[in-house]
Design a protein around this nucleic acid. Sequence first.
DNA 1: ACACAGATTCGACATATGTCAAAGCATCGG
DNA 2: CCGATGCTTTGACATATGTCGAATCTGTGT
Lengths: 128, 128
Amino acid sequence: MSNLCDHWTVPKTLPLLLDARPICCPTLEDPAGISDADATALAVRLKALADPARIRLLSLLLDRLGEGASTRELAPLLALSEPTVSHHLHTLLNSGLVAKDRQGTTVYYRVVPEAIQAIARVLHLTCC
Amino acid sequence: MSNLCDHWTVPKTLPLLLDARPICCPTLEDPAGISDADATALAVRLKALADPARIRLLSLLLDRLGEGASTRELAPLLALSEPTVSHHLHTLLNSGLVAKDRQGTTVYYRVVPEAIQAIARVLHLTCC
DNA sequence: ACACAGATTCGACATATGTCAAAGCATCGG
DNA sequence: CCGATGCTTTGACATATGTCGAATCTGTGT
C-alpha cells in the first residue's frame, strides 16, 4: 500500500492552488469589489466542496491519506451507487481537491490537502 | 453613518459560529468518517458562499464594514434586480454570513467576519 | 388617512445538480 | 482472443437554484 508509484494525475481544468486573493482586496480601489471572473473562479471551488456527499467523500479520503481509495470501496460507505460516487469524484478532481492514480484495473483517489488549504487561506485573508 | 444603533439581527436558523470540527476528526474512529449531519451542516454554509453573485455581494459589504449597505444600493453594482439581490442577501443571512439592521425604510446589511473565519478555520483544521 | 420609497414575497421560467440503472470502456489473467 | 472486474459515460428523472416582473408588505412623512 505504501509502495505505490506516484502517478497521481493532477487535474488540468483548474490550477492546483488558487492565487490566494482575498474576497476583499484592500489595495484595489475597484468600486465593484472583486471581479466577476475572480468571484466565479472562487465559487467553482467552493461549489465543489459544498455538497454533503462530497464532504463525506473527502472525509473518507482523509482517513486514507497515503493509500487513497477506489470508487468501489467508497460507494457502500456512502450508501450511494458507484456511478454517483464516480460523478462526485470527477467533480472533486476537476476542482483540484483530489487526484487519481490508476493501479491496474482499479483507480485510487487521494485528497490534495494543499487545495483545501488554499481555499482556507483565501477565506482567512478575507476576514483577517 | 458611524452613529447607527446596533440592532443588527443575528440569524436564528444557524448558529453564528460553527463548532469548528474539521472534516476529518482524528479522535473519532467512526468508520464512515464525518457524520451525515455534520457534513450537511458544513455544506449549507459552503453552499451559501458558493455563488459568484453572493461572493461579489460579500466583497462589496466588506468594503463597507462599519456602515453596511442596502439592497437598493447593491443591486445596480451587481447588475442584478433588487428581488434577486434580496434573495441572495436572505441566503447569506440564513447561513449567518451577514446581519441586517433596519434604519427607517431602508435595511442595512453588513458582513459577519466571524462566520467566514469559522469556515476558514474548519477547512484549515481539516488539512493542518 | 394617504401617498411614497424601499424591501420582500410570489409566480414563473430556464438552467443546474444529484441520483440511479443500463450500457460502454479499460485492464488484467487465462 | 475472451471473459471477468472495476470504472465511467449516457440517458432519464426529480429536485434545487438563480433570475426577473408584478404584486405585496413596511415604515415615513404629510
